[in-house]
Amino acid sequence: MKKITIAFKYILIASFLFSTGCEDIFEYSPYAANVKDSYKDIGIENLEEILEQGTEGKEEFKFAVFADSHYSYHELDEAVVNVNSRKDIDFVIVNGDIADHGYLKEYELFHETMDDLKIPYLTTIGNHDYRSNGEDVYKEMYGNRNYTIKYNNCLFVLWDDVFWESNKTPDFNWLEENLEEGADYEKKFVVCHIPPFDAQFDDESELLYSDLMNRYNVNLSIHGHIHRFHYSEYYNDGVNYMATDAIIDKEYVIVTVKKDEIVIEAIKY
């Protein structure tokens, strides 16, 4: 009888735990990709927030670029504080490697830190974000790996260019179609984690990418991955390539888009 009482108590407590919807206090594997409801569709919400800003006709605007935060949550938090202290930045782009092992928990910790940001942020997927079941987590939290946004008569193409970890060739057709469709925009930015001069691009892919940038008059090709700041007209063809240092080095970049020029500023904090 006493055994039944004991078993009943445990069943009662287990039922209580489940009935209160507390499945989130049980975790099954760091590799599980069961994104909790409160973390789903963050990318879509942020995108809508940027579009709601109603920016058409602004003389100039600024956006910040973070990259390769991995598990540098302390430095990421400081970057968020730094951006929040400024009033002139419209949105942030986090250019890949927001996770390290691709664990769901790394994505959660990333968003918990970014959630303090007072302005919306967009993301691209990086090579580390693919590891384990990271791709599934990324999709649930941030949506499509390839998407575009039109802001103040400028086109932003955010594109997945991960080769090795994704086990596929990036979708160059999608990239070309979207650049072609957006050919009339005043300025064009392509944002992808890996720069074309990195080892993940073979010669053919590098040539294809740089040719697309050149052919569609892309103003700035924005990257991360190499963990150092880089800004140059890499192929001497009129297209500027920029890479952001890793967040662990306490550096991010502010891009100021003016009518006649684009100003790049590496910010140490």
Partner: peptide, 15 residues
């Protein structure tokens, strides 16, 4: 997970 403990130890905020 030990990695999470490490991440929390080096983070500024307590997670």
């Amino acid at each position: 997970v030990a990695d999470y403990g490490f991440y929390n130890a080096i983070a500024k905020e307590d997670h």
